[in-house]
Design a binder for these strands. Structure first.
Lengths: 319, 319
DNA sequence: CCGCTCTTGGCAATCGATTGCCAAAACGAC
DNA sequence: GTCGTTTTGGCAATCGATTGCCAAGAGCGG
């Protein structure tokens, strides 16, 4: 700033010749800024997360910020341990894609005043920026699409209530059903909370089995996410229920490869990559001094119509 | 060690009461050990990598080692930048799933004496431990399976020569063809090097199109990885070539969801998760003082037979 | 030539934990 | 009670970069 250009050039060329590279650990200690951020996700093997991670990476890299990744498998205890470790490591910020709506033991740790950005899932009563997809709109699009095809009895495989996504999508489902004047039957909603174990196709299969055992009539089904929808494919196929001839299925997220299932899955496109991008930008703005405490960014959801939805058969399945 | 148990208890309880947590940055500076490691992969969105990352995570977490993740998209320059950044950050070790066989500008950086473990891809003339799947065996299993079904003319969609996997699988393919006494035709091998752009289904489609344009007869095809195989599905379907009736297809890796394609893909199971696990163990042993410099761990490959392979049709496709 | 401002170079403190050393205190044995 | 050993508390240096301060030197106008 106040040194001559010549000196600057001389010093930096000398530095280059000597191959000098500043020790970021020492700098981090002195400045109390590590230029690294932490990211907690449920499971990197769940196909919904890699695009989100890429979104974060792509924005953070140009800023020279490195990313510490960890999977929690939705275990609160592990989450606390991992957050503690990251805090001890003095990350400059924390991205959480693992938030639960109600009380989380994390709260205590989050009292630490490092910037936090929530991805996808919100936490009640916590003034923290959040980037999410528009679940209400997404579900409404799905319901409307099915209604237009002529479906009146639609079932829903709902995610956990503890997670805002699961809760919101179920609420949205109920609202959209009434809005569209369809026959909403509480018994046609199966909640993941009735089961245990990891979210995945097996869970979807178990839930679909539960739904069938209830004998509630339905001609279409909306799953809270694509993995659950795939579980339905498995169960329906084994029972010789044809998709979409007998039952229409709509997924959620538009995860990789669901366009290649048979039949290709109609699903709501959740902007996973974009969520990562926007979350990272929010964090960087925060680093730059912006006050974005309670800001929520809602990204549009769109319906991707493929081949798993069709007009309903004359008589509803109750097999 | 030489202090009374009572003091130890007193101190640690006091520490707990005060909520004392050691600052890992300061410790890292003093001890020159950060308890973090770096991981470079081509792209976390490529479904082959999440399982590998999980394998690493699952072994590193119990040891309290955190993981810095970065995707290079196979750009050597980005790789150099990311490795530099990680070195500046004083990671204790580096996992590279991005190695290229021949010269890489990375070499210079790797002169730094931090432990390195290569995943999946090897680097010529570099004494660094490597964990890989058995590509020769995997390809041989694929060829033998097709031979047993009665195929004699088999095509191969080969990966880049610059990457050991691509090279090895192609060599293995040629060797296995001769070994099995089949009709090996160099023109039936399409190399990814003839194209540019990211590895993915589009590349596979382009390669399959190239193969078809050559008019070499073949009744089966082995792709160097599942994504390429999926690209073939697209092209063949658009040309009304039926799988497996007209052409049999074998993939490689057994990535998530390929069991749900139509038809479900016969593929070689590459132990992705296990590679991550073993690599992490190698690293930890190294931290503990083990000398495992040039060790290579080869993990078994197995063939997963699904529905994309069948006996050849009476006459070979040359469409 | 003096006094002023602006540039340099140099020096010391700091971040928080680790490490080694030393003195003080406690303990045991003789 | 003395000597030797063990425990304890305390102190200082260190890791490498950042930050502020101060003095020496350069440059300029009066």
């Amino acid at each position: 700033e106040r040194v001559s250009a010549e000196i600057v050039a001389r010093v930096s060329s000398a530095a280059k010749e000597l191959g000098y590279r500043p020790n970021r650990v020492a700098r981090a200690l002195r400045m109390d800024r590590s230029s690294s951020v932490g990211l907690l996700i449920p499971d990197i093997s769940n196909p919904a997360y890699p695009p989100m991670v890429r979104g974060l990476e792509d924005v953070l890299r140009p800023s020279g910020i490195s990313l510490l990744l960890a999977s929690t498998d939705n275990y609160p205890q592990r989450e606390v341990e991992l957050v503690s470790a990251m805090l001890d490591q003095r990350v400059d910020g924390l991205f959480l894609a693992t938030a639960t709506s109600k009380y989380s033991p994390l709260r205590m740790l989050l009292a630490a005043k490092i910037p936090i950005v929530l991805l996808n899932r919100s936490m009640d009563d916590l003034a923290v920026p959040l980037v999410r997809g528009d679940d209400h709109k997404g579900i409404r699009l799905a319901v409307q699409h099915l209604a237009e095809l002529g479906h009146r009895r639609i079932a829903h495989l709902a995610g956990t209530d503890a997670v805002s996504n699961g809760f919101d999508r179920r609420e949205a489902f109920i609202a959209a059903m009434k809005e569209s004047g369809l026959d909403f039957d509480p018994a046609a909603v199966v909640s993941a909370d009735r089961f245990k174990g990891p979210v995945g196709t097996e869970l979807g299969a178990a839930m679909a089995g539960d739904l069938l055992s209830r004998k509630v009539p339905f001609t279409a089904l909306i799953a809270a996410n694509d993995l659950l929808a795939i579980g339905c494919y498995d169960v329906f196929k084994s029972k010789h229920i044809r998709i979409p001839k007998d039952v229409s299925i709509v997924g959620y997220n538009d995860v990789a490869m669901v366009d290649r299932l048979s039949p290709p899955l109609t699903t709501v496109r959740h902007p996973l990559y974009e969520i990562g991008v926007r979350a990272a930008r929010l964090m960087i703005e925060r680093f730059a001094g912006a006050e974005n405490e309670a800001m929520t960014i809602g990204l549009a959801a769109t319906l991707i119509v493929r081949k798993s939805t069709a007009p309903p058969p004359p008589r509803a399945v109750t097999v």
